[in-house]
């Protein structure tokens, strides 16, 4: 008996839509003089992000890692003076599979020199409006969304209040270990579904979730990460930063990530010290954003599962 696993899971129409989408994206950036570049997919260094695992390969007998994003390569090119640039290609994340995830996926990442996160949010909105043909763009801060839906200030609420809110809203098999885990649970279970239709640009994340974004005070004097996310109909599509350019702070964050991973018994990968060197030599002030192209295609074509837009997802790859 055959179960036809040689066949693509995506329809031929979806594959043609994919080609058209990639062409649209390239045209969008060509018109704006943003340069397409290639950076290594296979690298001796890996992300230090506490919640992202890399896939390990062997290259010339030694471990190498499949890129979880093109970020480090692109930033080194920015520091080398290349100017506005983007990458459109594959990225890989270990352990991520489901209706919205495939371990191998297509990522668009671009950088704008001299811009901050607010200005780049505008361009993300323009690209999404163009590709998805929707005009409604709502911008709101992380705090505003929490206040609107849960009457809770995510920056000032006590850990006990956050835990109590989680306990009210979500049935868990475990006790949340810290504030950020509570915030992640509320975001994914309660707030994403409540975002409503159209494009939502969410900005000013908690400083503890800055990743590689600058931390600055907001209008109320609260330190916030100058990071934003784009959602369409509650589906997370893109994550952007006003980029950290301070090499000492960059090194501190790498080391803090390493300590976190070590303490939580997660694999500790070699971090990219060349990024710290690139920042030392001077990376221009810039904003950058990464966008999931498979999800964009899901939205553009009205598909409910990522398998419907990828020819051969991991079960068939």
């Amino acid at each position: 008996m055959t179960d036809n696993t040689w066949q693509p899971t995506a329809s031929l129409a979806a594959l043609r839509q994919r080609a058209a989408l990639l062409a649209d994206i390239r045209q969008f950036f060509a018109r704006r003089q943003v340069l397409e570049v290639e950076v290594p997919i296979l690298s001796r260094r890996a992300t230090s992000d506490p919640h992202i695992d890399s896939i390990t390969a062997l290259c010339n007998g030694d471990p190498a890692y499949l890129a979880t994003s093109p970020e480090f390569g692109l930033k080194r090119l920015l520091a080398a003076g290349l100017g506005d640039c983007y990458y459109l290609g594959k990225a890989f994340r270990e352990g991520e599979a489901g209706g919205r995830h495939n371990p191998e996926f297509t990522m668009l990442e671009w950088y704008r020199c001299g811009w901050d996160d607010r200005k780049l949010m505008g361009e993300v909105g323009e690209l999404l409006s163009l590709v998805l043909d929707i005009q409604v763009v709502q911008s709101l801060s992380y705090r505003e969304l929490f206040l609107r839906e849960l009457q809770l200030d995510p920056h000032t609420a006590s850990e006990a209040d956050l835990c109590a809110c989680v306990a009210r809203e979500i049935e868990l098999s475990f006790a949340p270990s810290d504030r950020d885990e509570c915030l992640d649970l509320l975001m994914s279970h309660r707030l994403e579904p409540a975002m409503g239709g159209g494009i939502t640009l969410l900005y000013d994340f908690p400083a503890s979730q800055a990743a590689l974004a600058k931390v600055a005070e907001d209008a109320t004097g609260t330190p916030v990460a100058r990071r934003f996310e784009a959602y369409v109909n509650g589906l997370e599509l893109a994550n952007g930063y006003w980029e950290l350019t301070d090499p000492a702070e960059q090194l501190r964050r790498f080391q803090a990530d390493h300590r976190y991973r070590g303490a939580h018994k997660l694999h500790v990968y070699p971090f990219e010290e060349r990024l710290v060197e690139a920042l030392q030599s001077g990376m221009p002030e810039c904003a950058g954003v990464a966008l999931g192209v498979d999800r964009l295609l899901m939205l553009a074509g009205g598909y409910s599962s990522i398998d419907q837009v990828i020819a051969f997802p991991i079960e068939r790859a």
């Binding site: 991520e96 994914s188 279970h189 990071r227």
Partner: peptide, 15 residues
């Protein structure tokens, strides 16, 4: 049903 949930920069859960 088993739904994998993961914010881009957050922890992964299964609903």
């Amino acid at each position: 049903e088993n739904e994998f949930v993961k914010p881009g920069k957050g922890q992964a859960f299964n609903r």
